[in-house]
C-alpha cells in the first residue's frame, strides 16, 4: 500500500515535471510546477521529514511559486512570445549550457546507481541494532530546534545574515530616489 502510494507520487512528480518543461503554454506550466512541488512534499513525508515537507509547501508554493506567477502575469507579452518561440532544434547554441548541466546530472545519477548495493553501510546497521532510529510517530520538531541552536548554529546564522542582506537589497531597489 505504502509502496504503491510512493510510486504514485514519484510518477506524478516526474510526469508533471516533464510536462512543465515541454508545455508551450507558460501559464499552464507554471501551475503544473505547483503539482511538482506538492508531489515532492509528499515524497519528503515518506522520508519521515514532515517538517521539511510542510516547509516546502509553505516557502515554495506559498511564496516562490506565487511570485513566479505574479512576475509572469505582470511581464510584457512580446517578451513572453519571444520566450515561447525559441528554436526547437536539439543542439542549438542557447542550449549548450542546459546540455552540459543535464550530462552532469546524468553522470552523478549513474555514478549513484553503479555504487548502490543492497546492504546498509556499517554505521546504519549499528544504529538500527541500538534502536537509534526515528519512528513515524516521533516528534522531531524539538530535535530540529535543538540542533539548529547547537550543532548547526553557524550555518543558521549565516543564512539569516544572507536573508537580511536580500531584504535590505529589495528595500533599496524599490525605494524612491531623492528628487534633488
Amino acid at each position: 500500500m505504502e509502496l504503491a502510494i510512493f510510486y504514485a507520487f514519484a510518477a506524478l512528480v516526474i510526469g508533471s515535471a516533464l510536462l512543465v518543461v515541454s508545455l508551450k503554454n507558460t501559464a499552464r506550466s507554471l501551475f503544473l510546477f505547483f503539482i511538482v512541488l506538492f508531489g515532492m512534499a509528499g515524497l519528503f513525508i515518506f522520508a519521515l521529514a514532515d517538517f521539511v515537507a510542510i516547509t516546502q509547501i509553505m516557502v515554495y508554493v506559498g511564496g516562490v511559486l506565487i511570485l513566479m506567477i505574479f512576475a509572469f502575469m505582470l511581464s510584457n507579452k512580446e517578451l513572453l512570445a519571444d520566450l515561447q518561440n525559441t528554436s526547437s532544434k536539439f543542439l542549438s547554441i542557447p542550449n549548450w549550457q542546459s546540455l552540459l548541466l543535464s550530462i552532469g546530472f546524468l553522470a552523478v545519477m549513474s555514478y549513484g546507481i553503479i555504487e548502490w548495493h543492497d546492504n546498509f553501510p556499517q554505521w546504519i546497521t549499528e544504529n538500527i541494532r541500538q534502536g537509534n532510529i526515528i519512528k513515524s510517530s516521533d516528534n522531531n520538531i524539538n530535535q530540529l530546534g535543538i540542533k539548529f541552536m547547537t550543532q548547526y548554529l553557524l550555518p543558521f546564522e549565516v543564512i539569516s545574515i544572507f536573508l537580511l542582506a536580500a531584504l535590505i537589497g529589495a528595500a533599496h531597489l524599490s525605494r524612491k530616489e531623492d528628487p534633488k
Binding site: 501551475f31 505547483f34 517538517f51 509547501i57 509553505m58 508554493v61 506559498g62 506565487i66 506567477i69 502575469m73
Partner: peptide, 25 residues
Amino acid sequence: NTHTGLFFIMAVVSIDAIGILMAGW
C-alpha cells in the same frame, strides 16, 4: 493528530492563493 498541525494549516491555507490566481488567469 500530528505534531506539525499548526504549521500544516498555515502551509495548506497558502495554497488557496494559487487557486485564486488560477481562477483570475
